[in-house]
């Protein structure tokens, strides 16, 4: 198979390096301009692209009507819309602690949805 060289922007950290990725089909042969994490990112992006997903769920009894949540690990990119539909059905009650698991093993991915902050119960 023919070798292909292309530019890929790494989103692992805020540096946003432009990686020069040489690949043979789905196999990365060489990555220029990046760190160790960039090399892993290039291979992952080719075979199974993933992103950290942050959103919110409904909250009862807190200072605000929403609780921000995020994925415990990068989540498969093609399944993000499915994940968002699941989150729309969720409602939690205060008190909530930081990193409290809101949904375990969401959509059988092995990834948890956890709280991005603490939210105390508001006593009127």
């Amino acid at each position: 198979m023919a070798k292909i060289s292309e530019n890929v922007i790494c989103v692992t950290c805020p540096k946003g390096c432009t990686l020069i990725v040489t690949r043979d089909g789905q196999t990365v042969i060489d990555v220029e301009n990046g760190c160790k994490r960039g090399k892993d990112y290039a291979q992952q992006e080719l075979t199974d692209p993933r992103r950290m997903v942050a959103s919110s769920v409904r909250l009862k009894g807190g200072l605000h009507p929403l609780l921000p949540v995020y994925t415990s690990a990068p989540f498969p990119k093609p399944r993000i819309p499915e994940l968002l539909s699941v989150l729309r059905q969720v409602e939690v009650k205060t008190p909530v602690s930081l990193d409290q698991v809101i949904l375990e093993n969401v959509l059988d991915t092995g990834i948890n949805i956890q709280s991005s902050r603490e939210m105390k119960e508001v006593v009127e």
Partner: peptide, 9 residues
């Protein structure tokens, strides 16, 4: 790699 509220917390 944290969300903003976690960082603040």
């Amino acid at each position: 790699d944290l969300p903003g509220p976690s960082y603040a917390q």
